[in-house]
Design a protein around this nucleic acid. Structure first.
Lengths: 240, 240
DNA sequence: TAAATCTTGACTGTAGACAATATGTATTTT
DNA sequence: AAAATACATATTGTCTACAGTCAAGATTTA
């Protein structure tokens, strides 16, 4: 093992990913190269490489002569998300059941264990990151370089949405989170059994649960929505 | 308009993309930073940013302390390609028919005109690039940031495969290329009409045609295959 | 007072020089 | 003679310094 486990640059990438996913860096926020380079103890050229990579992964958007912006979330983004998610989730999960290796299954189980710990602790960020990691591993199992890029992008925004709409006090949501965790166990069983059809069906069910949670916020039970985020609203920070 | 139309860096990116797509830079080849920076008249730091971006887009793969490699094409790559292509093509084409703007349709028609010119000229590279551009525009029409990344990756390898298996002397293939061009016209009509179902169906048919062409090379009519490319063969250049 | 222009400042973009790591070759030792 | 180690070379990774560009603020004029 290395002394610092991994290079500063790698740490920088991973930390920025984490901050975007947990919305410590909010969607639409602009990043200052000089500031970030000082924070992570590297100079600007390598930091710029990092930002370019994160742009390729969909975490940030680059604007010429105006720097990097944390990928914004607009109402159009949400609509597109709802269209693409079930298809990609079902497809990748199916392939995961067909191709998963024993080593990957071990990794998935470890991840699920950590995920349940995070739920108990009640830490929203850890829970969201744990969930992201779980589905990311399923993406690795699918082992299809053409589908992975789309899955990764979906997971970024799915995680951010999950952070936005997290509410530890609402009992119904706590129960749904428990149900989601149970579904994760089912994922493991079906993937281990190689049951592709059932795994794909579970992926759709898992998505439906998540969708219901999200929609319960967008359309609250019987409350009028405090507008300003309604369809047609402008995005967080207009660009160009 | 600028004097040089666009910055050196942008020219560099576009030229490298082109070279990868046309296989002027063959899959698996390693790139020399110093050499490239001299060719494009920029220094190494910005060139490294370019390579990081191209890595994000799937044109190249970065290896730590070993530089950038043109994305390799292995037999696994091909298998994954066959799995993902019909799904993504059908989905994006459907969305394109639903969302295309008049301006985009004009652009698509211009692209198709150029594509037919390229076919007449018999220039394999121009033909392949024209086809790539056509489907890329359809991807723009779909306007779904979650599906676009997968589509772009598919198009990269679809284009490269098309270059590999191009054969101007084989009559059957020339006829198939004509048919493909005719299908492009149908794409335009269906997208303009907003007929999502028919467009999606056409996408599948278009894919099947392309697949048949590819398979006619992998499995030639009645010749024994000179082995060495059979399943289980090692990839172009092993890494790490 | 309001609008338009100019100036200033801050941040992005680039270049050239230096440091570190990996590979290949040559030499030495068994 | 063969294998292992050490050195040399080439290439990647990084830093400091400078140039270019955009945006905001202040000043001037109508």
């Amino acid at each position: 093992m290395d002394t610092d486990s991994r290079s500063k640059k790698t740490q920088c990438i991973e930390d920025l990913r984490r901050r975007v996913l947990t919305e410590a860096l909010e969607p639409g926020v602009y990043l200052d190269e000089t500031e970030l380079s000082e924070i992570y103890g590297i100079s600007r050229p390598p930091l710029r490489e990092v930002l370019r990579q994160l742009a390729g992964e969909g975490y940030v958007v680059l604007h010429e002569n105006r720097g990097a912006q944390v990928a914004p979330m607009t109402h159009k983004t949400m609509r597109n998300f709802f269209v693409a998610a079930p298809m990609i989730y079902a497809a990748t999960t199916r392939l995961a059941a067909e191709h998963a290796t024993p080593a990957q299954i071990v990794k998935l189980k470890e991840c699920q264990w950590a995920f349940r710990q995070a739920i108990k602790s009640g830490d929203a960020a850890e829970r969201a990151l744990g969930n992201e990691r779980f589905h990311s591993i399923i993406g690795d199992m699918a082992d299809n370089e053409y589908l992975t890029p789309s899955l990764r992008r979906l997971l970024i925004d799915h995680t951010r949405i999950g952070m936005t709409f997290y509410n530890p006090r609402k009992l119904a949501l706590a129960q749904q989170r428990e149900l989601a965790a149970d579904q994760h166990d089912q994922f493991i069983d079906l993937i281990e059994a190689g049951d592709a059809d059932a795994a794909a069906a579970l992926a759709v069910a898992h998505w439906e649960l998540s969708r219901a949670q999200i929609e319960s916020f967008v359309t609250p039970e019987s409350m009028t929505i405090p507008l300003g985020r309604a369809p047609g609203a402008t995005e967080t920070r207009g660009a160009s």
